[in-house]
């Protein structure tokens, strides 16, 4: 990744963050914390890595993306809007009656959404199905899915992991957003699914540990390394910061499912816009 690409992705991620803050503020609800923790990876996948085309969103050979942690929908929506799947003005209507953007991703209503998700544990199984289909018909596409770390407490995640490992779905990338927090507290306080790396390895995965989910060079190195694996599915366990990019939301469990109020939104927007202006210099 060269300097120009790095700069572009950094700015793109901040534009996505603006959409997350503004849309959840407008909706007066939603999940900014877990959207912001995956923003950099979403920017990397949709603006650099994945073989996709907003003008041909249902191309059968495209790479697929499944947001298994469907509550991070504001992150996905802002990414898709910035990528050109639909008009950015849709973000302001998030979660409102008759809006295209539902509280959780709806593949029938939103261009670019490859699977309806929201009930935790289910998206990763659908991603397995997509990967299996690709293998069965010798397609080159890859399937990316992001799981929450708290989501890994769902039994279905491990049913899916068993399936992916046993069927050797090497075209599958399971990304775990390891921010360490869930609604009722930290993972350690609630019902820890750790150690996640050892668990995925035991289920037959190639495990890659990404120690900073907000460093594009490291993100790129992890996903490039995943492409070298030809026999096993890959799990990328990425260390992320919940609320990343909005200072007062960072590492705060309370920002899991709470929207910013007017004052908080203004502070967050200014913070991000200042950063964007600086990046543009």
């Amino acid at each position: 990744m060269n300097e120009k690409e790095l700069k572009f992705l950094t700015a793109t991620a901040d534009k996505i963050r603006l959409g997350i803050v503004k849309s959840t503020y407008a909706a007066k609800s939603g999940h900014p914390g877990g959207s912001l923790s995956i923003t950099d990876v979403l920017a990397y996948l949709y603006f650099y890595k994945m073989n996709i085309d907003p003008n041909n969103a249902s191309d059968e050979n495209r790479d697929r993306f499944v947001l298994s942690k469907g509550h991070a929908a504001p992150g996905l929506y802002s990414t898709l809007a910035n990528r050109g799947y639909f008009d950015i003005s849709e973000l302001e209507k998030l979660r409102k009656v008759d809006a295209m953007l539902q509280g959780h991703p709806d593949m029938k209503g939103t261009p670019g959404v490859d699977m309806s998700t929201g009930s935790l544990g289910q998206g990763v199984s659908a991603a397995c199905g997509m990967a299996y289909f690709g293998k069965a018909f010798n397609k080159d596409y890859k399937v990316y899915t992001i799981l929450g770390d708290g989501e890994c407490e769902e039994g279905q995640v491990w049913e899916a992991a068993m399936f992916a490992g046993q069927k050797k779905l090497s075209n599958l990338r399971v990304i775990v957003d390891h921010n360490g927090m869930q609604i009722d507290g930290t993972l350690a306080e609630v019902n820890s699914p750790e150690p996640l790396d050892e668990k995925f390895a035991a289920f037959g995965f190639n495990v890659i540990k990404l120690d900073d989910a907000h460093d594009f060079n490291k993100i790129d190195a992890a996903f490039t390394a995943a492409d070298e694996e030809t026999n096993r599915p890959t799990a990328i366990i990425m260390e992320s910061i919940k609320g990343k990019g909005v200072s007062f939301m960072e590492n705060q469990v309370s920002w899991h499912g709470k929207a910013p109020n007017e004052e908080q939104c203004a502070i967050a927007v200014k913070e991000i816009e200042d950063r964007l202006a600086k990046e543009a210099e």
Binding site: S125, G155, F163
Partner: peptide, 24 residues
């Protein structure tokens, strides 16, 4: 070649079915 034994894991089986269906 078109039979998939998902093992004793019905929840995942339905999800895999859904994923396959999204591909046609």
């Amino acid at each position: 070649e078109r039979f998939i034994d998902c093992g004793i894991a019905e929840g995942n089986m339905i999800g895999v079915a859904a994923g396959l269906a999204t591909c046609g």
